[in-house]
Design a protein around this nucleic acid. Structure first.
Length: 325
DNA sequence: TCAATTTGACCGGT
DNA sequence: ACCGGTCAAATTGA
């Protein structure tokens, strides 16, 4: 991160200002349109900053797209980035390679998860944790000390496209409607090759996303929003600010920006306006009950190998990042 | 019939 | 030996 340092700072500052402006507006009586515009600008601003950081830092790494979906921001709290205990996996782009080599059921090393987010849904369905990617469940385990079992998912296109992205979902003990989701690996599946199916991660949920589900690809910002309609509240916490491209989120909806510490990034084209409808006021309220929910993500991804695509276009959909300001 | 989920077994790290 | 993560056969569903 060198060249664009100044620009990055400017973008971030702008984001902060916009967020603050939005904050004041949220409490006032402004049109939802105005709010949406502000939100979009904030998102765009942060996205640009992220891109800059990324480019400056990884110099056009060809890494696949981002991965971990997560968008988040904690509504009335602050966003922080930190490193999760489990992020050590720097074997880079893919810790997966191991998996491939060792075809049978063996693991050379314990998987380390890169990003962790917390999503809370109103209806408590795991389905609402969908992040827009196609996931296939491959296991479930009871975890010592945890009330609820942990579910393991891999990319639906793992075999078809050799995409080794994985994630695990676990309902929290404290609040059954809240899920801790950890991601590992990057999605390398090619959006252009439409796989036959795009599965939601879990059966239940998916009536919800059907409408905007035409993709096997990383969700585009708009889609993401749709996908996350259900998740209204996003909390990002513990994101490591020290690492520039710490992590990328798939675009999603975000909620209130209580202060500039709280924010979510949404990438670019938010076509969907509904997503923000109740934004900032009543997160849990949606037209479609099934979609309502809130996401509180605790993203911790620092140091993660997550790299952004060299091509801004590829980059788009999912990159949202949280920084500790 | 095919794809996704379930679930017990297996593997490797601690 | 225990535990978390993954595999893969069996089951389920569209």
């Amino acid at each position: 991160m060198d060249p664009p340092c100044v620009y990055i700072i400017n973008e971030l500052k702008q984001g902060v200002e916009l967020a603050m402006h939005l904050k004041s507006i949220l409490s006032s009586e402004s049109s939802s349109e105005t709010k949406q515009i502000l939100i979009q600008e904030i998102i765009s601003s942060y996205d640009r900053a992220i891109l800059m950081v990324n480019w400056g830092d990884s110099g056009g790494q060809t890494a696949p797209l981002a991965l971990a979906p997560s968008t988040l921001s904690q509504p009335e709290s602050s966003v922080s980035i930190n490193e999760t205990p489990r992020s050590h996996d720097f074997d880079q782009p893919f810790d997966n390679q191991q998996d491939e080599k060792v075809s049978s059921k063996k693991r050379k090393t314990m998987p380390t998860w890169q990003d962790q987010i917390r999503i809370s849904t109103d209806n408590g369905l795991e389905g609402n944790t969908d992040d827009g990617y196609g996931w296939r469940k491959y296991g479930q385990k009871t975890i010592l000390g945890a009330k609820f079992p942990r579910s393991y998912y891999r990319c639906t296109y793992r075999h078809a496209q050799n995409c080794m992205a994985r994630k695990q979902v676990q309902r929290t003990d404290e609040d059954p409607t809240v899920f801790d989701i950890s991601y590992k690996g990057q999605h390398t599946c090619n959006p252009t090759t439409k796989p036959s199916v795009q599965q939601p991660e879990s059966p239940e949920k998916h009536e919800v996303k059907q409408h905007n589900y035409q993709r096997p690809l990383p969700p585009k910002s708009g889609e993401m929003l749709s996908n996350l309609k259900e998740n209204l509240r996003v909390n990002t916490s513990d994101l490591d600010a020290t690492s520039p491209c710490a992590f990328s989120f798939p675009p999603a909806s975000f909620e209130t920006i209580e202060n500039y510490h709280d924010f979510n990034f949404l990438q670019g084209s938010p076509s969907g306006s509904n997503y923000f409808t109740e934004w900032g006021n009543d997160f849990q309220h949606y037209d479609d009950p099934n979609l309502s929910g809130r996401i509180s993500t605790t993203a911790s991804a620092t140091n993660s190998p997550l790299a952004f695509p060299a091509d801004p276009q590829d980059f788009s959909p999912f990159n949202n990042s949280g920084f500790l300001i």
